[in-house]
Amino acid sequence: MNPIVEFCASNMHHGTDELLEQLEADPTIDAIEYGCLGNCGECYLFPFVLVNGEIVAAETVEELSKKIEAAVKEQQAHQDALDKLLDDL
């Protein structure tokens, strides 16, 4: 299953619209834009997304891109460890 990266349309003034376009072109990520993600404080202050439901935020879009990649890898590592544990049961 691909990781899901959710964008808020109201956050696009930070430049996240370009990042959304990049991730939409990536077949290994499901990038989705919503009108509102309900995180207005984060939305107003800095670029942010939800990666599989977890907030990932940064000062710049470039930093956000790196944090998204790190979050996806970290979440996948946790899922792999959980799957291994369940297989061993």
Rank of each mutant, 00 (worst) to 15 (best):
K66P: 01
I55C: 08
G41V: 07
D88G: 03
L64Y: 01
I55Y: 13
L82Y: 06
N11E: 06
N52L: 12
M12E: 05
Y34H: 13
L50I: 13
C36H: 03
N39H: 13
E59Y: 04
E18D: 13
E21H: 10
M12I: 15
I29E: 05
G35R: 05
T28P: 05
P3S: 01
P3G: 06
M12W: 15
V51P: 00
V5F: 08
Q76A: 08
Q22S: 06
A31C: 03
E54V: 15
I29C: 05
V49N: 08
A25S: 02
E74D: 09
M12D: 13
A77L: 10
F7L: 14
G15L: 09
A81G: 06
I29L: 09
C40P: 02
A70G: 02
G53W: 14
T16V: 15
H14G: 07
H14D: 11
D88E: 04
A9S: 14
G41E: 02
N39T: 07
N52A: 15
M1Y: 13
H13C: 04
D26Q: 00
L19V: 13
L19Y: 14
I4E: 09
N39R: 07
L20F: 11
E6M: 07
F46G: 00
N2G: 01
I68C: 00
L50P: 05
E42N: 08
D17M: 14
I68T: 08
N11V: 13
A31Y: 12
L82E: 08
N2A: 05
G38D: 03
